[in-house]
């Protein structure tokens, strides 16, 4: 399969007087983890909901797994997994009942108990969804998103409201899915999340993509001036290695409190969205 998983050209969407999305191009390759970043109201959710087949577009060409999501078919829905932002449904069913029930929607579903194990809920399988913590609920959402063996999985702000430990564990789950070849499109507000999970990121602001690339090089991050800090001073430089060598000679060995840093993804991001 050489076709792109997601291909978007000139996507536009307007709500009344507001141009929510104003001409977006995207190419997401099969097997890639792609993160879409952007402030609230930037057009991020609108874009993803158009890709998911929830929303109609005004203009542009969109192909998701070779199908126009503006006309979603049952066969296409079977190949795409969607994990939505918020859901408080099905509170009275148990985890196992829920996953089993959803497995019945798909032509070639995975074994429900195996999926429950993969999302780390085996011990909670007999519990009602109502009794789960927020992080465990999100795991149920992911289980329902992947039960049909999707080729492409959408994750909309999957870890909002998680504590740091739950977030780390959730990342491992997503990394596991990515290793097995599932294409993942992720939206998030957390820059560290994008950095940990994504092969590539796109930053959307004002309905357009303002930057796109690998997290490590986004917005010229890798080649930006580095900042060398030590006890008693700091220096912005294009040649941090030379600075460190000079400092090392000056301090005769160990440089006290030495750090060398490039702009964080967060700093680059805030500059990109004009914050």
């Amino acid at each position: 399969m050489t076709t792109t998983a997601v291909k978007v050209r000139g996507l536009a969407k307007r709500y009344g007087d507001v141009q929510a999305v104003g001409g977006i191009d995207l190419d997401i390759e099969p097997g890639e983890v792609f993160a879409i970043l952007g402030p609230n109201g930037a057009g991020k959710s609108t874009t993803v909901e158009i890709l998911e087949g929830y929303r109609r577009r005004d203009a542009g060409e969109v192909s998701v797994l070779g199908v126009d999501p503006g006309r979603p078919t049952r066969a296409w829905r079977s190949r795409v997994g969607v994990v939505l932002q918020t859901a408080n449904d099905m509170t009275e069913a148990t985890v196992r009942e829920t996953v089993r029930h959803f497995a019945g929607y798909y032509p070639n579903a995975e074994d429900p108990d195996e999926v429950i194990e993969k999302v780390g809920l085996t011990e909670k399988a007999g519990k009602r969804v109502r009794e789960l913590s927020g992080g465990q609920r999100r795991r149920v959402d992911v289980a329902l998103g992947v039960i049909g063996r999707p080729e492409l999985l959408f994750l909309d702000e999957p870890t909002t409201g998680f504590d740091p430990e739950a977030r780390r564990r959730f990342w491992e789950l997503i990394q596991g899915l990515a290793h097995r070849g599932t294409t993942i499109v992720l939206t998030t507000h957390y820059l560290d999340e994008a950095e940990a999970l994504a092969d590539r990121v796109a930053v959307i602001a004002g309905g357009r993509i303002v930057a796109e690339g690998e997290p490590a090089t986004l917005g010229g991050r890798a080649t930006a001036k580095a900042t060398v800090r030590w006890a008693g001073g700091s220096l912005e430089t294009d040649t941090p290695t030379r600075t460190v060598r000079e400092l090392s000679e000056r301090f005769d060995g160990e440089i006290p409190e030495l750090t060398v840093s490039r702009p964080s993804l967060e700093e680059v991001y805030l500059r990109l969205i004009g914050g």
């Binding site: 998911e52 087949g53 939505l84 859901a87 099905m90 929607y105």
Partner: peptide
């Protein structure tokens, strides 16, 4: 509560 939206995203 999101039931309908979730279902609309499946092949049900």
């Amino acid at each position: 509560d999101g039931t309908l939206k979730r279902l609309a995203g499946t092949p049900m």
